[in-house]
Computed example of a mutant assay.
Amino acid sequence: MRRLASTAVAAAVLLVSLPGAVATSDLSVDVSNLRSAKGMVRVCLTADPDNFPACVDDANATTRSIPASMTHLQFDGLPHGAYAIAVIHDENNNRKLDTFAGIPREGFGFSRNPSVTFGPPRFAAARFTLESDADRQQVRMRYLL
């Protein structure tokens, strides 16, 4: 039995060290400061600075929608690297961030909670790096109207 366990451990180490094996992480995201439980929370996780925060043309972006009554979601098996998260509170559930004269009427938030002045932050301001088995990001929602 002990020999079988040793062989299994050796095989696992060999598989991880093979060329092409990709280290992965699990990411927990907590969303706070939602003003209501109406609608959906829409989350975009991307590693592409050119498609942040919209993620529209990013084939590799991971998007999720959860009811606004939930404040936690999990991404499993992400390759190590740099990412950024954009979140909107789609209160009327129309699948977009509603604006009035360019000002968001619904809530929004970003990984690392960067300050927001005119327009969304750059990817670099919201960027975080996955380097271990598990990580956590806390996104604080903001409302301007």
Rank of each mutant, 00 (worst) to 15 (best):
A101P: 00
A68H: 01
A21H: 05
A86Q: 01
G81I: 05
R35P: 01
R2C: 15
A84Y: 15
V31R: 15
R64H: 09
V56K: 13
K96F: 07
A54T: 10
V43T: 09
Q74R: 09
P104D: 01
N60S: 09
K38R: 10
K38S: 12
V29P: 00
G107V: 12
K38C: 03
D50L: 08
A21W: 03
P79D: 01
A82I: 05
Q137F: 11
S65K: 10
Q138H: 15
T99M: 03
D76Y: 11
G107W: 06
D90Y: 12
A59T: 08
D90V: 04
A124G: 13
C44M: 08
I66T: 03
F108Q: 03
R142I: 14
T24N: 04
H89S: 06
E106C: 07
A126I: 00
F110S: 08
A37M: 10
A125K: 15
L130T: 02
M40H: 07
V29I: 07
F110D: 10
R64Y: 12
R105C: 01
G107A: 04
Y143V: 05
A37F: 15
V43C: 06
D26I: 01
G119C: 11
H89K: 09
D58I: 08
Q74E: 12
P53S: 07
N33I: 00
A12H: 14
F118R: 11
G107H: 04
V9K: 14
S25L: 03
C44H: 13
V22G: 03
D135G: 13
T62C: 04
M1P: 13
A37P: 00
L73E: 03
N92E: 09
V139Y: 15
A84Q: 02
Q74L: 13
G119L: 11
T117P: 01
L130D: 00
V43A: 15
R35V: 06
K96T: 08
E131H: 11
D90A: 12
R35F: 10
G20T: 03
I88F: 08
L4D: 09
P49S: 12
M141T: 08
P53H: 13
L130S: 04
P79C: 05
G77R: 09
A11I: 02
I85V: 09
